[in-house]
Structures are given as structure tokens and as C-alpha cells.
Write a protein that binds this DNA or RNA. Structure first.
Length: 744
DNA sequence: AAAAAAT
């Protein structure tokens, strides 16, 4: 996306003459577009030409006309060839006039103002309007779909699925076509398979993305096909992501099938060996995995994901190749074939992992200063609500200050952020001395996290600590304009907190130089070693100073980090707190055996309560749907998943944090690290596939010694697998049949 | 399946 905020445009986008058309843009402080951040610039989707965020509940004809006219004044659009289309298209047969009217969701109402002026991209409009009616098949039509939905859900989609395969979500979909029943979805479906599929093959090709998409796409189908097809699949469903998404869909898709698509998949295929190789041998976690692959595989034939592939021209090819391929394209993942080589070494690591425990009792009466932290830092910690160290902090801080590489395992909510954040600042003070405030100084510490929300949260804790001694931090993560981040780097920061993608991006742009980074922290380190994260993380670590100190933390630190440990750490000290494991916590675990047909209703009933509730779903689409359903039932709820744009993600999480809603429905993006006070109930609407995921999800409650309840909803058919999973997590839970109307 | 960059 283009950013036109002053910090970034100056250096970077000067050539865009077309931009001057946005007369109202006043590059003063970077926030001129309107009252909210999304509207600050003309190139931005949410830009409001007049600068004022006028709320409109609906578009009147005049509004629309006016808008169209204004739009026409923007040369830029023409140059893109986009605008011309828009009028014709943006409107509305389908969409009926009221762009967003339907939307109860909090986010939505806001949109009109914003959209007020996306002006520049044709895309901006479409989605919005569409939203109402078609997109969300679920929601929009409110009365309508919904009714259908009722039955559907209850009776149908879901349930069908249940019975149907047993095999599951995934498979169902593949199978679904026959079923027609559902409406929004299914009605559309037939085409989809026969037909769309073809489209989709190419289109979807991609992988990750597609995951979310299908549903969206599916929903669209009910709308006139021609139109949907073109531009907005993703968009109208998750309105916010607007143009970037679309863009992405296309381009990615275009290449992905061949490339990444080919890849991820292949990798997965390959994965078993690898993991077996080392990641989780002991745990037996694999089986589930297997479980997972298996599902795909079963259906594969008719399967869903696979179909995409099927459609993919390249596919049969890819597949066949795969065996032999061994890396034909392997510039990206050159070592894939060599991975299985780690086998014996991990055991060593495992031993180390279990070695040094600190007794909680030994920590009594210890102060921050006793651990080696300075007074300023101790004071800052006190202000953060941590007057004295928790056990994991007492266990790791001295080692970090001593300059050792550290692997720290502390159960969820035990205070790991401070355990690495505070001593990291202390170390920078010690080493850094002289060049503290130098303009444009290079960062000397890096903290990597797997999600943006977590990076943001870590920064919120580390920043005050750093500030207390005059050091600066900045967040470097995606989904937001990079201008501010780059500006901060240019001014000079000491500590970077971020996610891998944007960090790599800025490195490639030569805007970020990690060569002076002497301390690197990987939070949720085991997850950072999972497929998809490992390689970027390796590349990033390779950009940091050779021999720099490395700190790896996670509640589920295990052999999975062996690769990184072998490659980057030297004689690490492994720390944990004796007797503090997930099972010894303050969380009550229960498994509810439910009939698939009752699932949604039961979740609704369980979530209808006073305290804060976090619901986990396996897919983005289900999270979205569930949030809608709860809202419809009069239970204020928001969602959090990767199909939302970052602004909404942040806002929705904040709504829960601030108590504006009590229910958040999330994918596993919220499984790790996210801290919200007082979540006393976690509902797993879909059971996790890995025991580690179970531990992290459930760890969103029962934090810092509080009590909490975790309910895992499963069909009876999943009982055994769930028991095995709980065994691995060393958690005991009652399994109880549960029906609508039951209480706990 | 999800997450992580953007154009």
C-alpha cells in the first residue's frame, strides 16, 4: 500500500505526482485525513476528503452522486484505470443502496465515514456495499439469510458435515456439493465445485490465504457471479482488508500455485518426517498431526484443499515431482531435504531443557536489585505492577545479565516478558554506554514474536522499562504503514520488537540493519521454530551480530527449538521453575461431549454470561461466523483472526481488554502470549490439534495465579484423541456429555 | 488451518 504520511512519503514516494490531486491532504503531522488513523491519507482506503469524519448511516442518492463526482476529480484513479469502472460497478444492483446498513457489528458502522472516501480505488467502494447483502452471507441479509441459517446451521451445514464424514470439516466441504441444502453456501456451491473450482484453482492456488477465502468466496457465490468473481472476493466479506487483500489474492495466486503453493504443501507432505525427526518425537504429538494430514488426505481425492491443487495446472505435476523433486525450486528452501539429519542431538537438548529448576520458595524476599537490575529499572517494574520478581524472572535474569544464552520455560502467565525484557535493558545499559542517543544509531536488541498483537503487547511492557534508562524501542510489524516504523529507525532506536515478515522486509529495503544487535529474544520460541517461521527466523538471526546473546522463551519450550539452539546458541542455560507446570495451575479443565448439531447453540449459551470469555475456533471463517451469531443472539462479541485488517484486529482485541465486549472469538492468532486481564472462561469451539496449542489457549485464563475455566467442546467421536492430547499436556479433565440448556 | 510482508 502506498503511504502518504509524511514520514514515509518524503523519502520514498516522491515521484507520485498524481498524489497532488488530493488537495486536502495536509502533510503536517501525518494525521490529517480525519479523526482516525485510517483516514490520514488520500491513498488510503479510509481517506476522507473533507477531513471530517462524517457519519452516515446510509448513502442517499445524492451522496452517491456527489461521491462519484468527487471521485472523478482524482486523476490518479484514471491513471489506474480503476475508477472508470467503479461507478458502473460499484453500484448496486446488488447492493441496494445501503452500504452498510446492515451491519450491527461495531466496526461496520464506522465505515461510512471512512469509506467516505476511499475515493481512489475502485475497490473501496465495492466491498462496502456489497457487504450488506451478499457477502456475509450470514449476516447481511440479516433477516433473511439468517433464517436460512438457522436451519442451516442447526440442521445443516454443519451438521451434515458432522455425520457426513466424521471426517470433517475439510472433507465435508469437498463433499458438500451434493448437498445443496445450505443456502448461502451451499446453494452456491454446486457451481463452485464444478466450476468455481476451476476458477479457483488458479485463483486460490495460494494456500494460506485461501484458507480463509473459500468461505468468503463461497458466500459470494450467491451474488451475481460475474461480478464477484472479479474483484472482490475477499473483500466483501472482510471488508477491511480491502484493496491490499485483493491485490494479494491475485498476485499471489498467480504465482503461488507454482511456487509457494507448491511449497507449503509439499513441505507439509514432507513434514512428518521432519517432525518425527525431532520436533516432537517424545510427545507422540505426531499422531495428531498425522491426524491432520490424514484428513486432508482422505478427501484428497475429492478433497477440498486438494482440489485446488487439482485445479492447479501444475499440480499433478508438482505432486509427482515431489518425490523426486527434492528441491527443484529450492532456492527458497534449499535445505529441506537435509533436515531429517537431526536426530540424536535433540536428546541432548532435551536433557538440558529439563536441567535447572529454580524453586519458587527460593525467590521469597528477593528484589530486582538482588538479581542485578539497576534502580531505575526496578522502579519502572514497580510502576508496571511488578514490585518484586516472579520465580521465572528470578530464575533467568541473573543468567541473562551474566551474558549467557538462556532458554526459559515458564508456564503461561508467569511473567516471561519481564524475565527477558528487564535484563535485556540492563545489558544494553552496560554495553551501550556512550552512543546512547546518537541519531540513527543501530538497534542493539531484537525481540521477535509470532503475532503482531504479541509484539505490540511485549513492546508495551518493555518500552517503559527501556525509557526508564533512556533507551528507545520501536515496533516493527506488518499490516500497518511502514512509514512510522522507518522514521523511528532513522531517528535511532535501541530495541526492536516485531514479527518476522516486516523485519525481513525492512532489512531488504535496507532500512533496518541488525548488524549491531547483540541480544536477540525469541518469544514463543518453539512456535517460531514451526514450519513457516523457522526459515525467516534463521535468516533474521543470521543478520544479527555473530555470537550475540540469544534468549529463547516459551511456556512449551521443547526439543523443537533444537535447530536454532544448535545453530545459534552457545552453551545455553536452561531455566524453569520447579513444580510450575501448566497442570499445577489454577485452571479448571473440562471437556464437553456434544452433538454437532447442538454445538453452536451450546456455545452461545455458554458465552452468555458475565465475565470475559475467549472462544477459540480453528478457522477464520468460523470465528467470524460465531461472532456474528453471538451478536445476533444479543451477546456483544468481536472476532480476532488473520482475515481482519490490523486496525480491526487491534481494535477488537482492545474492546475485550477494555471490557466493551465480554466475548472474543479468535483463531489461534490469540492462542499465544496475549494477555487480557480477567478472562475467566476459555471455550474451545474446535479442539486443538496439538497439545501445545491446548496449553497456550488455556493459558489465556488463569493468569498470574487467578482462577479460570477451560471448556473444550468435542463430538464424541473425538473423545479418544482428546484424551491422548490431554495426557501429553499432562492435564486432567472431566469428560461430560452436554446438551443445550445444561449448565456447568 | 493459522500465522507472518507488500506490491
Amino acid at each position: 500500500m502506498h503511504e502518504y504520511n509524511p514520514e514515509s512519503i518524503m523519502p520514498k514516494n516522491t515521484k507520485k505526482g498524481g498524489f497532488k490531486a488530493a488537495k486536502n491532504y495536509v502533510p503536517k503531522d501525518g494525521r490529517t485525513g480525519g479523526s482516525h488513523p485510517g483516514s490520514r491519507s488520500a491513498g488510503h482506503r479510509g481517506f476522507t476528503a473533507g477531513g471530517e469524519g462524517v457519519k452516515k448511516a446510509r448513502w442517499t442518492t445524492e451522496d452517491r452522486d456527489a461521491r462519484r463526482e468527487r471521485t472523478d476529480r482524482f486523476p490518479r484513479d484514471e491513471s489506474r484505470g480503476e475508477r472508470p469502472n467503479r461507478p458502473a460497478y460499484g453500484r448496486d444492483d446488488n447492493r441496494g443502496g445501503n452500504p452498510r446498513g446492515g451491519f450491527a457489528r461495531d466496526d461496520r458502522p464506522a465505515r461510512p465515514e471512512r469509506g467516505g472516501y476511499g475515493a481512489s480505488r475502485g475497490k473501496d467502494f465495492t466491498p462496502r456495499e456489497r457487504t450488506d447483502r451478499f457477502d456475509r452471507s450470514d449476516r447481511p441479509t440479516g433477516g433473511y439469510n439468517r433464517d436460512e441459517r438457522g436451519p442451516r446451521t442447526g440442521g445443516y451445514n454443519r451438521d451434515d458435515r458432522g455425520p457426513r464424514t466424521g471426517g470433517y470439516n475439510r472433507d465435508d466441504r469437498g463433499a458438500r456439493p451434493e448437498r445443496f441444502n445450505g443456502f448461502n453456501r451451499d446453494g452456491a456451491r454446486p457451481e463452485r465445485d464444478g466450476y468455481n473450482r476451476d476458477d479457483r484453482g488458479p485463483r486460490t492456488g495460494g494456500y494460506n490465504r485461501d484458507g480463509g477465502r473459500p468461505d468468503a468466496a463461497r458466500a459470494d457465490r450467491s451474488a451475481p457471479r460475474t461480478e464477484n468473481r472479479g474483484e472482490s472476493t475477499g473483500r466483501r466479506y472482510f471488508d477491511d482488508r480491502g484493496s491490499e487483500r485483493n491485490f494479494r489474492d491475485y498476485s499471489d495466486r498467480a504465482e503461488r500455485p507454482a511456487r509457494t503453493g507448491g511449497y507449503n504443501r509439499d513441505d507439509r507432505g514432507a513434514r512428518p518426517e521432519r517432525s518425527t525427526g525431532f520436533t516432537r518425537d517424545d510427545r507422540g504429538a505426531r499422531p495428531e498431526r498425522g491426524g491432520y494430514n490424514r484428513d486432508d488426505r482422505g478427501p484428497r481425492t475429492g478433497g477440498y484443499n486438494r482440489d485446488d491443487r487439482g485445479a492447479r495446472p501444475a499440480r499433478s505435476f508438482d505432486r509427482d515431482d515431489r518425490g523426486a523433486r527434492g528441491g527443484s525450486d529450492s532456492k527458497f528452501y534449499p535445505n529441506r531435504d537435509e533436515k531429517p539429519r537431526f536426530t540424536p542431538e535433540e536428546d541432548v537438548v532435551l536433557e538440558r531443557l529439563e536441567a535447572q529448576s529454580t524453586l519458587a520458595a527460593d525467590v521469597e524476599g528477593v528484589s530486582w536489585q538482588d538479581l542485578g537490575l539497576g534502580d531505575n529499572i526496578a522502579r519502572a517494574l514497580g510502576e508496571l505492577g511488578a514490585p518484586s520478581p516472579f520465580p521465572i524472572q528470578a530464575a533467568t535474569i541473573p543468567d541473562v545479565i551474566a551474558g549467557r544464552d538462556v532458554l526459559g520455560r515458564g508456564r503461561t502467565g508467569s511473567g516471561k516478558t519481564i524475565a527477558f525484557g528487564a535484563p535485556l535493558v540492563e545489558k544494553l545499559m552496560e554495553n551501550g554506554g556512550g552512543k546512547k542517543r546518537e541519531l540513527g544509531r543501530k538497534p542493539r536488541a531484537l525481540i521477535l514474536a509470532p503475532t503482531r498483537e504479541l509484539a505490540l503487547q511485549i513492546d508495551r511492557t518493555v518500552q517503559p522499562i527501556a525509557r526508564s534508562v533512556g533507551l528507545f524501542t520501536t515496533q516493527i510489524y506488518g499490516g500497518v504503514p511502514q512509514g512510522r516504523q522507518v522514521g523511528a529507525l532513522q531517528r535511532g532506536v535501541d530495541i526492536i520488537v516485531g514479527t518476522p515478515g516486516r523485519i525481513e522486509d525492512l532489512i531488504e529495503q535496507r532500512r533496518l540493519d541488525l548488524s549491531e544487535v547483540t541480544i536477540t529474544v525469541l518469544d514463543e520460541a518453539d512456535h517460531m521454530c514451526d514450519l513457516g517461521f523457522l526459515e525467516p527466523v534463521q535468516r533474521i538471526l543470521n543478520r544479527t551480530q555473530q555470537g550475540g546473546q540469544k534468549l529463547l522463551f516459551s511456556a512449551t519450550l521443547d526439543k523443537g527449538v533444537a535447530m536454532l539452539v544448535d545453530e545459534f546458541l552457545v552453551d545455553p542455560s536452561v531455566r524453569e521453575v520447579a513444580g510450575e507446570d501448566q497442570a499445577s495451575g489454577t485452571i479448571d479443565h473440562r471437556v464437553l461431549l456434544v452433538d454437532r448439531n447442538d454445538k453452536d447453540l451450546i456455545i452461545e449459551q455458554l458465552a452468555d454470561r458475565e465475565g470475559k470469555t475467549l472462544i477459540f475456533s480453528r478457522t477464520r471463517a468460523y470465528a467470524e461466523r460465531m461472532a456474528d451469531q453471538l451478536e445476533d443472539a444479543g451477546i456483544p462479541a468481536v472476532s480476532l483472526h488473520g482475515d481482519l485488517n490490523q486496525a480491526r484486529r487491534t481494535r477488537n482485541l482492545e474492546k475485550l481488554t477494555k471490557g466493551r465486549v465480554n466475548v472474543l472469538v479468535a483463531t489461534d492468532v490469540a492462542a499465544r502470549g496475549i494477555h487480557v486481564d480477567d478472562i475467566d472462561l476459555v471455550i474451545q469451539a474446535d479442539p486443538p490439534d496439538e497439545y501445545k496449542t491446548y496449553m497456550h489457549r488455556s493459558g489465556r485464563t488463569g493468569r498470574a495465579g487467578r482462577t479460570g475455566t477451560v471448556l473444550t467442546i468435542i463430538p464424541r467421536s473425538r473423545q479418544r484423541r482428546t484424551k491422548e492430547l490431554l495426557d501429553r499436556a499432562e492435564i486432567t479433565a472431566d469428560f461430560t456429555p452436554f446438551f443445550p440448556g445444561d449448565t456447568l
